[in-house]
Write a protein that binds this DNA or RNA. Structure first.
Lengths: 201, 201
DNA sequence: CCTGCACGATACCGATCGGTATCGTGCAGG
DNA sequence: CCTGCACGATACCGATCGGTATCGTGCAGG
């Protein structure tokens, strides 16, 4: 499994499974799930449909695995932000917002893969849909915890505000209705975290 | 109601074009664009594919027309909210938020049709995509105007905040990560509109 | 050295896609 | 009354979809 480059040809190619997942990532993100055929993924991965079906039972299973990896990547990035500011929830939250804001130009007019994929998966029992919903639920729980640690009066409401802002920023980037989205997003989240309280300690 | 048409001529049927658009509306909203075939639309509209192609050049043209009508419906609803509170921009903005909040339970786990459709239309030159982008741009312009009328210090930033909140609320309703979304949305928008200013008149 | 198996290549399957051609008929507008 | 045309029905088109079967080969692990 661990490859060890061997020495097949000049360029060291990744093993087929990785190439397939990379190809799926690029095509699903740029064109959506339904528009991308298994054959197209095979071609971009420089392999064949048969190889794909050797690693994944169905196209849906490949979609689910792609989203699983993507969710894990996001979780890892959030973990990194959190450990960068130990015991400082305010900075953790702002770091998270900065991470999203910095990713916006990359998403450009294609938006967030989770939001987009959900649109193509109306069936609530679809495995990929469950991956997304669990990821979003985890992310919300984490944010509520941070808001509580930061001493915000109503952590659940604050987490909802921040979540709406993050999701809305991605949607607005996609449809191009608002300029300087990243900048505005950071100001909004800072406003929530630094909101003046009614009572003082 | 659809099911079997036992009562033929008793019930006044809408003309085919309206039935097609109604059927498309229901199927696109509940299943997405790509998953719905022209044949399925014809069946639900109790007509044939030929009739659809008599009224619309392509499936894409039908999609664009559906979104055009939907955008017009939203515009009309916003107009109604605006004229309900003449000269009172604060109430207009809150009315707009209430309109969206009340619609959330209906959207349920399927979310906003504009957001969902954008996910399925990666091609920026697609006519339907342009319909959506123009609609969102108009909506933002209207909101900026209301915020300016309400005397908010930075109308563009306030409009962005409100837009993010509205879009984010719809996304979070779809993925189920947050409870009592409508209630939270109203509190957020009220907070923006009633935010204490640095200077007073 | 030997061998099993992942791999790539190729050919195929039924189903469904968007879109077209053709024709008979009922009804609305002149 | 007459007629044109929207309509419904039916049959068809090539392309593509997800998924499968089969086979030869090169290389890694024993």
């Amino acid at each position: 499994m661990t490859s060890t480059a061997s020495r097949p040809s000049r360029v060291a190619k990744l093993p087929p499974r990785e190439r397939i997942l990379d190809a799926a990532e690029e095509l699903f993100q740029s064109q959506g799930i339904a528009r991308v055929g298994v054959q197209a993924i095979a071609e971009r991965a420089e392999t064949t449909k048969m190889a794909i079906y050797r690693h994944f039972d169905t196209k849906d299973a490949l979609v689910a695995e792609w989203l699983r990896i993507l969710a894990a990547d996001y979780q890892a990035a959030f973990d990194r932000v959190e450990t960068e500011h130990p015991g400082r929830p305010r900075e953790q939250i702002l770091g998270l917002a900065r991470f999203i804001a910095e990713g916006l130009p990359t998403l450009s007019h294609r938006g967030c893969p989770f939001i987009n994929s959900l649109a193509e998966l109306p069936d609530r029992s679809h495995p990929a849909r469950q991956v997304i919903e669990e990821h979003k639920a985890r992310q919300t729980r984490r944010l509520v915890g941070m808001c509580a640690d930061a001493g915000l009066p109503d952590p659940e409401q604050a987490a909802a505000e921040i979540t709406f802002a993050l999701e809305g920023a991605q949607v607005s980037t996609q449809n191009g209705s608002i300029d300087r989205v990243g900048e505005r997003l950071l100001r909004i989240v800072a406003g929530i975290v630094d909101r003046p309280r009614a009572s003082a300690p």
